[in-house]
Structures are given as structure tokens and as C-alpha cells.
Design a protein around this nucleic acid. Structure first.
Lengths: 212, 212
DNA sequence: GAACAATTGAAACAAACGTTTGTATCATAC
DNA sequence: GTATGATACAAACGTTTGTTTCAATTGTTC
């Protein structure tokens, strides 16, 4: 086998775009920066993909597919194990988040940036294609796990959870910077466990009742 | 008194920039879009402010000052009321978040976009100036409120909390869109109470101990 | 090894960007 | 009544953007 596999131009573009989109954002990343990083010609982006927007779709699609597949597999295993019993909220959260934390660190950061930041219209399409189906798949199990919450409350807390994860995914190195070196960043596994510990407790908190 | 006060060019630019930065982001918003929205001449941005970056600073500074002042006032009141007793975590969270939710809705959304999205170097300066001081002011009270957590855990959970709030602030209309109209968005007061309920429970969750 | 399609390369395109320029307008002060 | 300052304006600056063009090169198939 070859020591270093020859990487196709297409993949080199995807890798570079993923890196730069994650670090600088979509708008701020030029095709020239991408092709320079990838070591390929400028025109090859429009040749292999059709436009910068289509490149963004391809970058996301390459990662979202496997992640969502593993999410659904994990959910199915839980459903089979527990039959009709409600799935505990922390196991549900782990099924949803572990596949993301176990892949390349760049991916969640990039996705988070798109999640509520920029390229609004383009992201809308990405959301509909790659995130909405898996969200709909998890929704019933989530409802069953949270019988004490009204639908609006459960939904709002799921949003909080997404935000907490986003903060984790987006901010690589945030802890060192903000604490000025006094603290070390947790490993990915530690961070995942802390995220689940935090958000599961949030979900289990009593309903606020009347208000909402 | 005048029914509708004449708004200065400078303020019209600030208002328009705040609106467009919040909705489209910094990079994606051109000075031409800002001046068109404000109904002023293109050059007036570089006249009243010096650059697009400096305009961003001004937009943030106009809002961050009053908000942080009210945050610190609320914290002082809690400290005086409770003397040396630890401040309950939910009261601490309310002191921190209520001043933000009670101001113009655009502001938190805009700040969130900058918080871990774009204009990295510019935002670093904004963070150091407007957010770091108030964060340092709250830090000791937070530690005292969370004696069961290691410093790293407390810090990580504060990050989760920021992310949960960010999701709330960034996504105006998210609930209607994602739920496809089945749910109505909560009022700001309801959302704040839900945020505190969720994150306070997260903070109170037991330490994970050894790992981190 | 010739023929052909697929891919890459350098260069150029129009459009949009942030910024600068020079001048006009308007108060207020002398 | 004229000089002075701050502000507003239209126009153009040079640069960068995403995209296109077309010739050169590569890889594959007969």
C-alpha cells in the first residue's frame, strides 16, 4: 500500500474548504484562499463543483451523511434495547452527540457557524436536507423521554442544548484564551460527558407550568 | 416636545448597521447596504467613523455599556442582600441575562453572531473591551455559588450556558420555522425564565469528578 | 501510437467591495 | 457680510470577489 495516498483535486478542495470555512466563515473565505490552501488551480472549483455555494453543500454533505447514519443506528439500538420504555434523556443525548464529537473536529465547528450565522438562504437548504430528517427521527423518542414538559418547553430546551453543544464545538481553544492559560481544555470525551451531564439535568428540571 | 425627533446621520448609520449586522452578519453586510438602509451617503460612514471595523466597534459599544452597567448593578444588589452567603445560581444567572433580554432584540443576536462566528481579530478586541470585565466581575460569585464543581467544570458549564443563551438570542423565529408553525415562540420573559430554569439545573448537576 | 475525453493551467471578465477625493451645503461666529 | 467649521454629496480610486474562457496537458481506449 502507498505510504501517502494521492489525494484527488476534488478531495483536496473539500478538505481546504472545510478547514477555511470552519476557521474564517463562508463569506470571509475566498475561492483563491481555498485553492491556494489546496494547492490546486482556481478554476478547478468551478469545474468540479459548479459554484461556491455548491461547494459548501458538498463540504457539508460529505460529513453529514455518515454522522446522521451513526446517529440513527444508535437510536435504533436504544429503541430495540428498551422496547416500549422511554429512553433515558442522557442516553438519547449521547446517541445524538457522540457521532459528531467522534469525527474530525473541524466539522462541527463549521456546521455551527452555518447553523445560525451566515449564508442564510444557502444554509436553509442545507438544514432541510441534512439536519431536519434526523431531527424528526429523534423527536418522538425525545417527547417520550420528557413527559413532564409541554411540547413548547421540550422544544425550547432542545434549542438550549443545541446552543450548548454549539458553544463547545465552535470554541476550540476558547477555554485557554478566556481563562488566560489557567485551565486546560477538556478532551473530547470529557467534554461530551460534561455536555450530557449539563443538558440532561436541564431537561429533567421541572416544567415551569402555566406561563409558556 | 417634538413628535418624532430628527435622528442624526451618525445614529441612523448605527441603527442600520446594527440591523443588518444582526440579520446578515458582518462580512456579508456592505457599507452600501448600510447607507442605503439608513438613507445616507456612502461616504458618511468613513466620515463619522473611520472604517467598517470601527463602525462595528461603535455599534457594539453603544449597547454593551448600558447592559453591562445594569448587570453589575444587579450583582451588587444581590451581594448586599446576601452578605457573605453564596448567591443562588439562578439569581446570578438572572442578574447576568435579564439586562440583555430587556433591551432591543437585535442586540443580542448581533453580539451572538460575533461571539464565535466572524471577524475573528476584530471580535477579539470587542470581547476584551466589553465582555471580559463583566465576566471577571461575575466570576467569584459564580465560584462561590458552585462549590461542588471543579473550576474547569464550572467554566465549561458557563460556556454551555452562553451557548444556550446564544441559541435563544440568535434564533428569532426559529421555533416557528423548525416546528413548521405548530408552536408559537415564547415571550422574552418566558424564554428568560426557561433559560434560567434549564441552565441552573445544569449547574446544580453533580460533578463528574475524576475525569476532568 | 493515434484519437478522444477528462482535467488542469494562466489569464481575463464584470461586478462589488471598502475607501478616498474634491466640492457643495449649511449653520454659526466674527 | 464674510470667514470658518462641520457635514453631506457624487464620483472615482484600486483591490478583491466569483466566474468564465480557452489553450495546454493528462489519462484512457482502440
Amino acid at each position: 500500500m502507498t505510504a501517502l495516498a494521492p489525494i484527488s483535486t476534488k478531495d483536496r478542495i473539500l478538505d481546504a474548504a472545510e478547514l477555511l470555512f470552519a476557521n474564517d466563515g463562508f463569506e470571509a473565505t475566498s475561492l483563491r484562499a481555498i485553492t491556494a490552501e489546496a494547492g490546486v488551480n482556481l478554476a478547478s472549483v468551478n469545474y468540479h463543483f459548479q459554484s461556491k455555494d455548491a461547494l459548501l453543500h458538498a463540504v457539508v454533505a460529505r460529513r453529514a451523511g455518515p454522522i446522521n447514519q451513526r446517529r440513527i443506528e444508535a437510536l435504533q439500538q436504544l429503541e430495540e434495547k428498551l422496547r416500549n420504555e422511554p429512553i433515558p434523556i442522557d442516553e438519547l443525548l449521547e446517541a445524538f452527540f457522540r457521532p459528531v464529537t467522534e469525527c474530525n473536529v473541524l466539522v462541527p465547528r463549521m456546521m455551527v457557524r452555518f447553523h445560525y450565522l451566515e449564508a442564510r438562504e444557502t444554509f436553509r437548504a442545507i438544514y432541510e436536507t441534512h439536519f431536519k430528517p434526523v431531527a424528526n427521527r429523534f423527536a418522538p423518542a425525545l417527547r417520550k423521554a420528557l413527559p413532564h414538559l409541554k411540547p413548547e418547553e421540550a422544544f425550547l430546551r432542545m434549542q438550549f442544548t443545541m446552543g450548548a453543544f454549539a458553544q463547545l464545538a465552535a470554541g476550540s481553544g476558547t477555554m485557554e484564551v478566556v481563562s488566560e492559560g489557567r485551565m486546560h481544555a477538556p478532551t473530547r470525551e470529557e467534554a461530551l460527558r460534561q455536555l450530557i451531564q449539563f443538558t440532561a439535568a436541564g431537561f429533567r428540571a421541572p416544567s415551569l407550568g402555566a406561563g409558556l
